[in-house]
Simulated assay, not measured.
Amino acid sequence: MRESTLLTVANGILSLSPEDRPARIAVDGVDGAGKTCFSNELADILKNLSVRPVIRASVDGFHHPRHHRYQQGKFSPEGFYRDSYNYQALKQSLLDPLSINGDRRIVTEVFDCDADVPISADPVSVPENALLLIDGIFLHRETLMEYWHCSVFLHVDFEVSVPRGNARFDLNPDPDHASNRRYVEGQQLYLGEVAPMQKATWVVDNNDLTQAHIVQR
């Protein structure tokens, strides 16, 4: 089922994307939803279906510095939602250059979150028919919606997403544990404020990775 779901989304992306200029596609979902794996698999299918070059990026390459991210407190859900990402840099370095009047010279990441240092990279020119496939949390917020030609939201319950995501870092798997409050409640703020499942082109249930299926278009 997963393969057929990915194929359906890939074909939909190609049908909804303009052919004479770059297209921008977002893959959204809570932490641990499986966005990166889904996007990588989707990119491979798009490359097999089309001659259009596929550019992969993640919003995680556009974090704010640590002092900015934690300005409302290290455990603040509001801070996690409001202060994590530098959307101005995301637009200037990646999204605007791929817009109608853009020069198609892009940078796919500007900040190393783990090292808490900026990344210096020269812009790279991309073809006029490129497909940008970007994954990350909070991608359906109002400031970004105008950029997406189409989008995916991976729906995963916190009881599944938190253990799945935290297993990578050997962190507590309980969604209700105090150590997870910043992230779970921050994402609940996003879900309540933005309602991304109502804005996404496709909503995919990714609770069971092998049985990922479209639940809403």
Rank of each mutant, 00 (worst) to 15 (best):
P173G: 00
A167D: 09
L95R: 10
F138G: 03
Y147Q: 01
N129F: 08
D103Q: 05
L95K: 09
F80K: 01
F80I: 05
L139E: 02
R168H: 08
N86E: 07
P118R: 02
L133A: 13
R104W: 10
H155D: 15
C150I: 11
N172L: 04
A130N: 07
L144G: 00
C113V: 02
I100C: 08
D83M: 03
Y87T: 06
L90P: 13
K74N: 12
D122G: 06
Y87L: 15
G136T: 00
E128Y: 12
A167H: 09
L133F: 11
P123N: 04
F169A: 09
C150G: 09
D170L: 04
S84H: 03
Y87D: 12
H155W: 12
V110W: 03
V162G: 08
V124H: 13
P97I: 11
P97V: 10
D112Y: 01
R104L: 13
I134V: 06
P173H: 04
A130F: 08
L154K: 08
N86G: 05
L171T: 02
P118L: 07
T108Q: 12
G102W: 08
F111T: 01
G136K: 00
A121W: 06
F169G: 03
V162Y: 09
R164C: 14
N166M: 11
D174W: 01
K74D: 14
F158P: 09
D157F: 05
E109N: 07
G136M: 00
L94S: 13
D170R: 03
R168V: 03
I119M: 13
V107C: 15
A121V: 01
C113I: 02
R164W: 14
C150M: 14
E146D: 07
S161N: 07
N101T: 14
E78Q: 07
L90R: 04
S120H: 09
G79M: 07
L90C: 07
I137G: 03
L144I: 00
V156T: 14
P97K: 12
D96F: 11
S120A: 10
L132E: 05
D170S: 03
V160L: 13
F111A: 04
F153Y: 15
P123G: 04
P97G: 14
V156Q: 12
A121T: 02
S151I: 14
V152M: 14
M145V: 01
N86T: 00
L139A: 00
D170M: 02
L154C: 09
H155V: 12
V117L: 15
L154D: 11
W148I: 02
D83Y: 01
C150N: 08
V107I: 15
D114Y: 04
T143R: 07
